[in-house]
Design a protein around this nucleic acid. Sequence first.
DNA 1: GCCGGATATTTTGCATTCATTTTTTGGAAG
DNA 2: CTTCCAAAAAATGAATGCAAAATATCCGGC
Lengths: 234, 234
Amino acid sequence: MSETFLDTLDEQGPAPAEAAKPAASLHEGLLVALRDFIVEGNLADGARVPERALCERFNISRTPLREALKVLAAEGLIELLPNRGARVRELSPEDVRELFDVMGGLEALAGRLACERISEAEFAEIERMHHDMYRFYLRRDMHGYFHCNQAIHQSIVAAAGNATLAATYASLAGRIRRVRYSANLAKDRDRWGEAMREHETILDALRRRAGSELSDILFLHLRNKRKAAQATAG
Amino acid sequence: MSETFLDTLDEQGPAPAEAAKPAASLHEGLLVALRDFIVEGNLADGARVPERALCERFNISRTPLREALKVLAAEGLIELLPNRGARVRELSPEDVRELFDVMGGLEALAGRLACERISEAEFAEIERMHHDMYRFYLRRDMHGYFHCNQAIHQSIVAAAGNATLAATYASLAGRIRRVRYSANLAKDRDRWGEAMREHETILDALRRRAGSELSDILFLHLRNKRKAAQATAG
DNA sequence: GCCGGATATTTTGCATTCATTTTTTGGAAG
DNA sequence: CTTCCAAAAAATGAATGCAAAATATCCGGC
């Protein structure tokens, strides 16, 4: 039974927001599907990316697949070895350090820009999420906390009103998603409390539209997140 | 009939230059060559990217060319219209605004990281370039000043010691290179003096390894650059 | 002379094919 | 049993082929 590419997409299950919009072209759709396929960990770190198998999986020929692989390589998600195919890129501790810092820089920028243009409604929404997150924190609900945390950071980036920033941020987020740092707070209760306090200051600075201050706080917040991740994972 | 790309291509002279350029792989070499070809303005803004002509120009078939086009589209240098081919992406004022701000955010990050790890020798080198630039400023040597200016900003990014940051920065710089020169100080002597003074404060903050402060200064420096560019180009 | 529609040409997107290169397999020597 | 080397098999990188879509050209009507 041959399954079509679109059927395969449907099988992916509950995917984030962008799954709802139909793919403008085959290439674009394949790119998204393949990126998700890799980011979600369907291939082991450093594993060879099997062209043949993926062609069958997505019911396409090698040409569009290889086009997508080149793009993913340019994004840094995989690496292409001449005549030796594509491999899922392994993130060294150095890579993780770099990614965290750049993410921190971009969030710092997002905070600064958000202070310039965020509306009261947008701020109220973030404030609401913050309170939700606090409740998760009090209940020691790690999963709910983490979800809220992600949503808040994402909302700050969105509030910056800069599509280029959002795209760059999303690309780096995809690269680092394979590193499971979400569970790290469980092993470090002190860090969890500290992170919660940092979020209080984030909200406060955003309320006061203190761009420069928020920029500093966000960078240091990410820096501390990195340190916690390195301490537990490294 | 509108201007033909072939005319533009013919003006370039003999093609073999790219073929002679040594490259690890055909794809990688072609990608670099094609990116330069577009960034250097060999194709008009919004112009169609002629697959067939470029294949002849670079002596390759359509397959590797199209792979390169997909990558350049992902980088934001061109845009792909379904069934209508690739076009050189035109930068709207909004795009330019976004790019300047993200560049500012990345430079702010670079300054902060540079303060953490720059060596005395690296700082001395930047200081030397700064003094060179000041001499160009005094002599009203726009070209020399601009070159030095670029080198200083590039050195700060390099001193950050973050390859991911450097790659992201380079990608955005390529996208904006077409309009970067329109931020011409020649039409705005006041801005030139202001920029020079800002560079003094940049060097001062870097000397004191004042990361947070330097971060602010660099972002605002880019923000002012953006305003100057918008004032002269808009 | 200008416009609208049908046809011819070009272009695009993808599949397939072909030449190399790499990897695996098989077996003989030590 | 291990090691080395040669042949087979598979994978990669790039060229070509082909159907569909878009663009250009031509021609009749107003």
